[in-house]
Amino acid sequence: MEFNNNIPIYLQVMERIKQDIVSGKLKPGEKMPSSRDYSYELGINFNTVARVYKELENEKILFTKRGLGTFITESKEQIEDLRYAMAKNLIATFVEGMEQLGYSKKDMIKFIEIQYNNIERIE
């Protein structure tokens, strides 16, 4: 994983885990690597990973079973909420950017209708 050092690394790791959950790369109930292993895997600081796990637990996206490790939430509802929140974030960024370019709401919708099939998808 490449990091942008201008943004707190824990935020970037949190974002990536969330994306992997929503996209299905990480399955509900799946066990996460230990903080130690994960920090080694990502080549980042141990405490950063510990913080990521803690913050994601607070958001109810991860949970810890004592002595067993950290797991991804099994609640479909929780994951749906996450997907919804992330989509909302994306659209907010999109709308803000488009407004700066001078698009009205109507124009934006029209633009999407026309452009949807032409947009090059970034893998």
């Binding site: 942008n4 050092n5 201008n6 943004i7 707190p8 690394i9 824990y10 600081n45 950063t48 913080r51």
Partner: peptide
């Protein structure tokens, strides 16, 4: 703290 620094200054430690 490195992360606090990035958060506050919106910049890498290197920056």
């Amino acid at each position: 703290d490195a992360e606090e620094l990035r958060q506050e200054r919106q910049m890498s430690v290197e920056g």
